[in-house]
Nucleic acid binder design. Structure first.
Lengths: 264, 264
DNA sequence: TAGTGGTCTAGACCACTTA
DNA sequence: AAGTGGTCTAGACCACTAG
């Protein structure tokens, strides 16, 4: 649509942004930003066709790969869809494509004033549920860890974790180190863990949780469950965080980011 | 580490996977899978250096761009980090990189058996809070919508939304169409909405919410707040979903996906 | 048949790191 | 100085879509 506009086709110099090759930003990045801005300002609306690769090459004097790379960025960001043989089109805002990260949780844990207090570390026989999650026989000895996370001396999260106890696998210590939480988020150098499954649910505080978190019973809280696997695809650790609901909020954006030109 | 292994350096034929050019999967994709599998099996461990681009070119007989593209995929997936002048290295599993999609929410709403029931649609003067969120004067007339989402006739979510009412801007109807929720997730063709901000919190059901959702007062629930903006960067709609906690769970995986070779 | 995106080639130069 | 990733060039062929 916008590409059929005579102004655009005639390419009136001063109106058209250019690629500045002396800039710090590489050309593919500048071009991606130009297109992103056109989408953001509504110059290109959902459903409109974006200029084809060849057109972009001519218009901005870049090589095909550079134009393509810019389009790929928008594609990855979910701002456009590409249809072979037809063209590239601006996507309407789709809620389902939004995603949020654990950044909010990480901040909660990695802040300057955050402290981890071990409440208990002991071995115990696996209950039915634990044996199921860790794929070990019932009554196998496992390690149970309870931690409290405090920020500015105020409790924000309660962590329970069950770790496989296998003298043949010297995982325990490593695991203990990793799950001391500093490393969990930042990536603690060498790790025996290959993969983790995470789930976020809501819950209300039980009596025990309420007492530890110094919040009323029945308060809203997040429950972040995690299962970690080693390189043999064996579960190594299962546990969950109970985070006070008033301390955590996950954010996401869908559509075009407003001012910032944040790369991936 | 693994790349210093003589076996690998000597490149014993049968052990080394090859790129099959007759396959449906393009070479860059095959190569990415080969490397991903090496990471998954532990052949390449966190901290290990991945073969350099040139090495990959020689070893698998592909062009630099193809090797690079495979590495870029792993880079985007967060499996490796690249350091100019040093090499590409396998990243340890990092929790902070986990990303949760709103697919779970979408499924909840877009299922076959999902029904939207309007509870009320009316105009009202903006309260202080509404005026703040929608950036309109207090007591400006706005539209208030209350909806109930039912899945298999069972209520799963309660939706409240406040929409700007401006006769000059024919947004209302379009907005009404969009926010009838079918379109919100799927992307309803042409849209006046440019951007949306989302926030996810936990809460417990109030008396009203509990009644509508047919769940006990004080049950755990998600609160998904949303603000939508038009192409003038003006807020157009503010509202939130209250979703029964037992109907929704966000999932994510961090590290290497186990068996599937899922592309982006 | 012409245009499009998807993929690929076979190089190149640069900035950076390491030795 | 050698090796690395980051970027870019100037093409190419293919499968697909649309007129």
């Amino acid at each position: 649509m916008a590409s059929k506009d005579p102004q655009v086709l005639l390419r009136k110099g001063p109106l058209e942004p250019r690629i500045d090759r002396d800039l710090f930003e590489p050309p593919y990045y500048q071009l991606a930003n130009i297109l992103r801005r056109q989408i953001a300002t509504g110059e290109l609306r959902p459903g409109d066709r974006v200029a084809s690769e060849v057109q972009l090459c001519e218009r901005y004097a870049v090589s095909p790969m550079t134009a393509r790379r810019a389009l790929t960025i928008l594609l990855d960001e979910g701002l456009v869809t590409a249809a072979r043989g037809r063209g590239t089109f601006v996507k309407p805002m789709v809620l389902g494509t939004a995603s949020f990260g654990l950044g909010a949780l990480e901040e909660l844990f990695n802040g300057e004033h955050t402290l981890v207090r071990f409440l208990s570390v002991k071995t115990m026989p696996a209950t039915a549920r634990i044996s199921q999650r860790l794929e070990v026989p019932v009554d196998d000895r496992i390690i149970a860890i309870r931690r409290l996370l405090l920020r500015d001396a105020a409790p924000v999260a309660y962590h329970r974790e069950y770790v496989i106890f296998d003298p043949a696998r010297p995982i325990i210590e490593a695991e203990m180190g990793i799950t001391s939480l500093q490393g969990l988020f930042q990536g603690s150098g060498e790790t025996v863990l290959k993969r983790g499954d995470l789930g976020i649910q809501t819950t209300v505080l039980t009596e025990e949780e309420a007492r530890l978190l110094e919040a009323p019973i029945g308060s809203a809280a997040f429950r972040v469950e995690h299962t970690f696997f080693d390189f043999d695809e064996q579960p190594v650790s299962w546990g969950w965080f109970i985070v006070r609901g008033d301390c955590l909020r996950f954010n996401a954006t869908v559509g075009v980011q407003s001012p910032a030109a944040s790369g991936r």
